[in-house]
Simulated scan of single mutants.
Amino acid sequence: MELDDAYANGAYIEGAEAFPPRWAAAAAGFREGMMEAGLAELDLSYGEGARHRFDLFKPEGQAKGLLVFVHGGYWLAFDKSSWSHFAQGAVEAGWAVAMPSYDLCPDVSIAEITHQIARMVPVAAEMVAGPIHLAGHSAGGHLVARMVVPGLLPEAVAARVKRVMPISPVADLRPLLKTSMNEKFKMDDSDARAESPVLQQPLEGVEVIAWVGGEERPVFLEQATALGEAWGCDCVIDAGKHHFDVIDGLQERDGRMITRLLG
């Protein structure tokens, strides 16, 4: 299809095939340590489906608030088990971190995945007091951006959301109609428009920070900057980072990404 190459990340990242097993191993090690410390609750339910589960990682003492991190994979791949270690920076900074799995296309539509995350956030919010911040990578960036569009989250929960960071987000889904992935997404133009944050506006009072690697594919730089322009928010271009290592900053308590995300 016309835009398959434009949206291909791994083909342009050296050693791309090594990233998923490395993520999975690091995530398993982090979970084990958090469980031993009594600071993790795993496979918490937010719905009836087998993948409607999230993990909650807690700091020592009272949490400052809740960070929800939503993974990517083009709505087609992965689950929460590969990303646990990206909670490290926020946990060390005193925040609780919830990480959900969700159903994947083509079993469900992207719109249904959006509504699954909207059902998950309030469940996690009941478990942790204080402000709620959201972050997501790639497809997860799309999903967290959608959470701060009016009408998705219950009002009481939405009022607690103070900051959202879509990282390398797919913010305009219309170009995906020209990729072979749409054989699994099964979107038409109306579907793509309805799920495109660039065609919507965020809740008032929520700070939005788009973040993208400087070495990403041009379409991802375009997607992030388009969200920044549409929403009038900051768009940070992280020099030297590509689509797979741009999220590494989430592990660094005092790093630039965590500092911007948590304040």
Score class of each variant (00 low, 15 high):
A24V: 02
S180V: 07
L42P: 10
E48H: 11
H137L: 03
M1P: 12
P150K: 15
L173S: 15
G72V: 00
A224I: 12
H71S: 01
A124N: 12
A98H: 04
I209N: 09
I110P: 11
E155L: 02
F220Y: 03
V97N: 05
W211C: 05
S109R: 13
P150I: 08
K184P: 04
D254P: 15
K178G: 14
Y102F: 02
A145H: 00
L227Q: 14
A37G: 09
R160M: 01
E204C: 07
V144W: 09
H71M: 05
D107K: 12
H142S: 08
I113K: 09
Y12P: 05
A230C: 00
H85L: 00
A93M: 11
E36S: 11
K184H: 06
L56N: 08
G130A: 11
A27F: 00
M257N: 15
A90K: 10
A93N: 03
G94P: 13
A171L: 15
A77I: 06
S81N: 05
G73D: 10
A77R: 09
V123L: 13
G228A: 15
H85Y: 00
D43L: 01
S138Q: 11
G130E: 08
S196P: 08
G240A: 01
R260M: 10
G228D: 12
K64I: 06
G73M: 14
A156V: 06
A156C: 02
S196I: 08
H133L: 12
S109N: 08
K178C: 13
G10E: 03
L177K: 12
G249F: 01
A125K: 03
I110V: 01
S180H: 09
G38I: 09
H115R: 10
W231Y: 07
A111P: 02
W211I: 11
M1E: 08
E183A: 15
V208E: 08
G213C: 06
D238S: 14
D5V: 14
E112Q: 10
E17Y: 07
M127H: 15
E216M: 10
S84L: 00
H71R: 02
L42H: 06
G205W: 14
G130P: 07
S81G: 00
A125E: 08
S168H: 01
G130R: 10
L153P: 02
R53C: 03
C105R: 14
R193N: 12
K80M: 04
A93I: 04
P169I: 06
A118C: 03
E126H: 07
D4F: 02
I113C: 03
C233E: 07
M147Y: 06
I110G: 04
G73E: 07
P131T: 07
A192G: 11
L199E: 12
E41T: 13
C105E: 03
F86Y: 13
G136P: 05
A18M: 01
A145W: 01
D248C: 00
L203T: 14
P169S: 08
A40R: 02
G94Y: 05
D189S: 13
P59Q: 04
